[in-house]
Design a binder for these strands. Sequence first.
RNA 1: CGGGGUGUAGUAUACCGGUAGUACGCCUGCUUUGGGAGCAGGUAGACCGAGUUCAAUUCUCGGCACCCCGACCA
Length: 425
Amino acid sequence: MRQSQLFGKTSREDPKDAVAANARFLERGGFVFKNSAGVYSFLPLGWRVLQKIARIIREEMNAIGGQELFMPALVEKKYMEPTGRWGVDISLEVLGAGEKEASFVLGWTHEEVLTAIAKHLVNSYKDLPFAAYQIQTKFRNEPRAKSGLLRGREFIMKDLYSFHADEKDFESYYSKVREAYNRVFSRVEVKAVYTVAAGGVFTKKNTHEFQVVSPVGEDTIYVCEKCGYAENKEISSLKAGSACPACGSGVEEKSAIEVGNIFPLGTKYTEALGLQYADEKGHKNYVVMGSYGIGLSRLMATIVEVHHDENGIIWPESVAPFQVHLIELGIRNHELGNIVKNTAEDLYNRLLAKGVDVLYDDRADKTVGEKFADADLIGIPWRVVVSEKMLEKNGFELKKRNRANPEILSAAALVEAVENKKDLL
RNA sequence: CGGGGUGUAGUAUACCGGUAGUACGCCUGCUUUGGGAGCAGGUAGACCGAGUUCAAUUCUCGGCACCCCGACCA
């Protein structure tokens, strides 16, 4: 991608209404655009990051047998009423044609919708278990959207639902999901603490959350540094310094961002909606359910909260919008400058040919300082500079975003290094 | 939803009851070129509505929007 053509520009000033690091850097870097409070557009740069995250989540969900599908955002009243979730506070209701009262809600979760589908498809124990998920926009009329992408009224979420014949089968799947979630969070390089929590509007049972410790987090958790056991303050009888229920060591109080959760639902929804199956003896039983969420847009914001410095974002390689930021410092209308320009074009094409994702800063009207400052802000892991100075040394400069000192490499060595993602620095 | 605050150019800001200023951006030209360049010229602005007033961007009221604290929450 040529940066001169990119739909998205950096800005030098922080937006006046943004305080959280994720909002400041994502808006300034041209990753997202705030359309309303808690309502964001993803610009091409931000959308690439989101797609990288989505791909990792898909791989891990598929690996535990999750089947991807896609459900409607318009959810009719008849689905939510039987479970008592029609008209809850966070609902964004929609009027049908000619109606005076809303008959649809913009979907904020999909247990009911998928259970209705399952009623059509599940008759026998032979149809169980199964797990299905989607990646979709969710709508929740938050009384107070805040902290950039961390709490929006509209956000992108992966929601997985599993259906089982009995609790035992459910529990074994629940722990599989837990492991899959750990892999997701470790691949995007956030440290998520598995935390015991409350079920809110989803279930009366205890649930589990994946919490990333961060000062901007809205949740308070008690976490044991020694064994890693953690409880959410909302259900906990612990205090800072209390003995850890798991190992007896002291727990600490931390602010944390909830990046994922897994809910045991039992038969709450299947009873309310009448989802039963026939067992081996022909007896009818209610299906046991679980639901499992990861907020993708929130996770993207969390990654920024965890991985940045004063100059901008430092993307983990797994989710960076591009692998390489190629910066050309040729002087316009100048003989040597043209050589620099041509050399950079050539290198750009070589990297593309090798299948490397490159953002090529070919902008002719930007100064050196501006290009470097933009590169720091956008936070692509590898930076390659082509300039007169480098050509004199017969090489290219390669620098990692999180390192201070660059390396000078020949073109061939550089292409090889980037291609093999060799950490030469 | 309770409390507090803020709405001025594309962005960030200043001043003011009477002609709205600065910086960055953007456009033209020349110069410059390894950490947000220089000169010259140009472009562009008071959230909406009502009231007070000779006169409102400024004061008052209402609405709307956005931010922060709380309650709530993936």
